[in-house]
Computed example of a mutant assay.
Amino acid sequence: MKRSEYRKLQFIGGSSFMVSLPKDWVEKFNLKQGDTLLVSVEEEGSIRIIPSSLIGRAEPPERAVIELPKLKDPERFKREIFAYYILGIDQIEINLKERIAPDFMSVLNEVTRSLIGIEITSMEDKKITLSCLTSKDLSIDSVLIRMKQLVNTIIDGMMSYLENRDERVLQSIFDMEEDVDRFYMLSVRLENIGMRRMHDSGLSSWDFLRMLLGHRLITKCIEEISDELMKIFEHLKELEDSPGFRTVLSGELESIKSCFDVAMSAFLEEDLERAHESYELGKMIEERLRKESENSNSQRDVRMKLILMSMIELCRILRTISEISINRSVRATLRKL
């Protein structure tokens, strides 16, 4: 149970000081003279004392075993595999009661297509081993950059479709949206692995957790941007071919892409000025889109109005990225003082 109490600091000679530990706490963890304790100095000045028995205790095993008598619910099975993946498990052994059936292989193939680095590395009559071949040392920033590149390419594809209605770009846009989802899952996996390595990071635990939280929020924002872009794209395919609409939408997509680039650069480079710039740019684009939406009142403009509403939602997400970037940049400035 959490509690606080005052204890006196004592001088024990030379340059050493001592503070006694609560007796019941020492007994709870079976500590004795000579045992090692981890002393962590936090950023705000407080100190955490952690028994060695707790260090790494919550770390999940790198190998998991699933006993599967029969594949009754494929979606439940996939959710469990996804959970092991994002927890950082490297190897998943699946034991079956019956021989591997074609429908089970179809589900497994869907899993391997959905998760970056997951491959079937062993297959016997009643046992399959899935392994994650992605390096744990892959940086979260590199995943963020790849997600940013994918979103920009999706926007470029949409503008290309607006310009010439080339049906060949359709599948590539859908594929890239799926890649954004796959990289999001990978980022969550890397964040969980980072949590397990927290004590080796060189940062205080609070500082490290804030860093991971910032990355989690940004990757989630990028995933939401990708989803919103796909809503826009679905409406674009059904929109009546109008040069006026095409010009407006293409211009606004280009503006959103520019704002997204500035916001992401601000986050990755901890650039306060660019973070403010992206916030103001997103606000300006949103105001313009709202005016355009108010002018689209006829029945013929319903689909255009839905597109503009999704673009307004994109601006809201971009402002969220900008706000996170501002907070991160301010903290970086304080660390330099």
Results as ranks from 00 to 15, higher is better:
233 F>W: 00
317 I>E: 01
332 A>G: 11
110 E>L: 06
272 L>E: 11
279 Y>V: 06
269 E>W: 02
99 R>N: 12
79 R>F: 15
306 L>T: 02
10 Q>M: 15
306 L>E: 09
333 T>Y: 06
190 L>P: 03
13 G>C: 14
27 E>I: 02
166 D>C: 14
165 R>C: 00
6 Y>M: 08
204 S>G: 15
298 S>F: 02
308 L>I: 02
52 S>N: 10
93 E>M: 06
219 T>M: 01
282 G>M: 05
285 I>E: 04
159 M>E: 13
54 L>I: 00
191 E>Y: 12
300 R>S: 13
245 F>N: 05
216 R>A: 04
57 R>N: 08
164 N>S: 15
96 L>Y: 03
64 A>P: 00
208 F>S: 11
322 S>R: 07
272 L>V: 04
129 T>V: 14
289 L>K: 01
76 R>P: 04
106 S>A: 10
169 V>S: 13
28 K>T: 14
108 L>P: 04
197 R>Y: 14
202 G>V: 05
336 K>I: 05
309 M>Q: 06
320 T>W: 12
273 E>A: 15
216 R>N: 10
130 L>M: 03
41 V>A: 14
175 D>K: 04
218 I>L: 15
296 S>D: 00
262 V>Q: 08
101 A>P: 01
46 S>M: 08
19 V>Y: 07
213 L>N: 12
134 T>C: 00
9 L>F: 14
116 I>G: 03
293 S>C: 13
116 I>K: 05
179 D>Y: 06
16 S>V: 08
211 M>D: 07
216 R>Y: 02
302 V>Q: 04
285 I>V: 12
179 D>G: 09
88 G>H: 05
3 R>T: 08
337 L>Y: 04
311 M>G: 03
290 R>I: 14
17 F>Q: 07
185 M>E: 10
301 D>C: 01
17 F>W: 15
255 S>N: 13
161 Y>M: 02
136 K>P: 01
195 M>K: 10
201 S>T: 09
251 G>E: 14
185 M>A: 15
318 L>S: 04
271 D>R: 00
173 I>L: 15
167 E>I: 04
261 D>G: 09
329 S>L: 01
4 S>H: 10
164 N>T: 12
288 R>I: 01
177 E>K: 09
139 S>N: 09
263 A>G: 12
303 R>Q: 13
271 D>P: 06
207 D>Y: 02
218 I>E: 05
211 M>G: 14
173 I>D: 06
50 I>S: 14
144 L>V: 11
227 D>W: 02
311 M>S: 04
227 D>E: 09
79 R>L: 15
174 F>H: 10
221 C>D: 13
13 G>P: 09
286 E>S: 09
105 M>Q: 09
190 L>Y: 07
77 F>R: 06
231 K>H: 14
229 L>W: 02
310 S>L: 06
